[in-house]
Design a protein around this nucleic acid. Structure first.
Length: 194
DNA sequence: AACTCGGGGCA
DNA sequence: TGCCCAGAGTT
């Protein structure tokens, strides 16, 4: 994702939940042409914004959250995106994953955003010392050099979408099944439903 | 832990 | 057509 400032990045990442980057790019290309600042978004009605972002799904939640977030940004943060995790995560529509994406891409902080694919793959392969999202996050962050974070993020996601899927993982096609904790413990099998 | 939101992607 | 989902919030 290439966005010209932290605010556009934040909005784009909020929109990207359960939605493809392609759809987000198509939506934001039009959206940021009309509205550029938190103040521009804060005065929109929920229905106006919902209509603009409809293509990204979950539009009722997202439009309401974005408007709330933009009001907070303009009233409490001088119209700027805060650079602290605690501040970001407390914004409506912003969870651990979104906050970490913004911290990494907009503020250059060494975070590793953990989405559902990274979360699942890390636990199955035993890349994490614990099962909670923040333990997976810390384990992965410690394990992978920040210079390679972006590349590994995409590799793990692609791996999770194509091979190490949530249901019916393709263990027969998996090049690392011999190292997989779940596979060794027979909690994953070659063809049974998981 | 389980549910909801929802259009898009894909078989 | 029907199933799943490159998340977060609520109960």
């Amino acid at each position: 994702m290439q966005y010209s400032n932290p605010f556009e990045l934040l909005i784009a990442v909020i929109l990207s939940a359960q939605c493809t980057d392609k759809q987000v790019n198509k939506t934001t290309e039009v959206l940021f042409e009309k509205y550029k600042t938190p103040q521009d978004f804060a005065v929109l009605s929920q229905y106006q914004l919902a209509d603009e972002i409809k293509g990204c799904g979950l539009y009722r939640n997202k439009s309401l959250n974005i408007i709330k977030t933009c009001k907070i940004l303009s009233e409490r943060y001088g119209g700027r995106v805060p650079g602290k995790f605690i501040d970001l995560q407390s914004l409506p529509g912003v969870g651990r994953k979104t906050a970490n994406v913004v911290l990494n891409l907009a503020f250059g902080q060494p975070t590793f955003p953990v989405d559902t694919h990274v979360y699942r793959v890390a636990r199955r392969l035993g890349l994490s010392f614990g099962n909670t999202p923040r333990m997976v996050e810390k384990s992965i962050t410690d394990l992978i050099p920040m210079a390679e974070r972006g590349a590994w993020h995409h590799r793990l996601i692609h791996f999770g979408r194509t091979v190490c899927t949530a249901r019916n993982p393709k263990c027969a096609d998996c090049v690392v099944s011999q190292y997989c904790l779940k596979f060794k413990k027979h909690e994953l099998t070659l063809d049974k439903e998981n």
